[in-house]
């Protein structure tokens, strides 16, 4: 039973991963990726990493919708109304893809892994919680700091108002500006003109 489900899910996962790059509509591409991930999540559940699989599903919905939103924002012809492929170095990319599949697959098939010891069945989540709070406390807190850095970094990069004026109007730090003005720097806008 689990085997059957596993094969179905891996089929869905790989096929929809392929569809991601073969569809014209950006929204469809993002949701094909979501389907692929969801199938991976089901496989994780089958591996009794229940919490991991479900939490992946939880993350996915938000992340892939955001992905769709951004893809529609920044792709011309986002819905694929005019069918058109936008690829470069196609053959090289296929070769690289196949090579990495073969390489990693070989590791999977021929590699030797320690035999599976009985894995925890019931309180996987609880053990994960203990791990988080004790041994891997640093990882947990580092993740917090990393996420904070991500938030601030992403907002700073994406926002229009930089410290020295609007991002799209050649804002330059005053010091740099002075040194450039010695030569022939571009005119800068007023500070904080937003």
């Amino acid at each position: 039973m689990t085997d059957v489900l596993f094969w179905i899910m891996s089929g869905i996962s790989v096929l929809s991963a392929w569809r991601v790059f073969r569809t014209d509509s950006m929204v469809r591409a993002a949701y094909w990726l979501m389907v692929s991930f969801a199938a991976v999540a089901v496989i994780l559940v089958l591996l009794s990493a229940e919490f991991l699989g479900l939490v992946l599903l939880l993350m996915l919905a938000g992340e892939m919708t955001i992905m769709a939103v951004f893809m529609v924002m920044f792709m011309m012809n986002p819905a694929g109304l005019n069918p058109m492929t936008m690829v470069h170095q196609h053959r090289a990319a296929i070769a690289a893809g196949v090579l990495s599949f073969l390489g990693l697959g070989a590791v999977g098939v021929f590699g030797r892994f320690p035999a599976g010891v009985s894995f925890a069945t019931r309180d996987v989540t609880a053990r994960l919680g203990m791990e988080l709070l004790n041994d891997s406390m640093l990882i947990f807190q580092t993740a917090g700091v990393t996420l904070l850095a991500t938030m601030i970094g992403a907002l700073a990069i994406a926002s229009r108002r930089g410290r020295y004026g609007l991002a799209d109007e050649d804002s330059i730090e005053p010091a740099v500006e002075n040194s450039q003005n010695a030569g022939e720097g571009p005119p800068s806008t007023e500070k904080g003109s937003a």
């Binding site: 919490f51 992340e63 951004f70 989540t125 609880a126 919680g129």
Partner: peptide, 22 residues
Amino acid sequence: YAMALLFLAFDMEMVFMYPWAV
């Protein structure tokens, strides 16, 4: 879109919170 970026990062907090709750 800026809020969406914030969400991407903040959402991760929940992954850590579930095992913590148990």
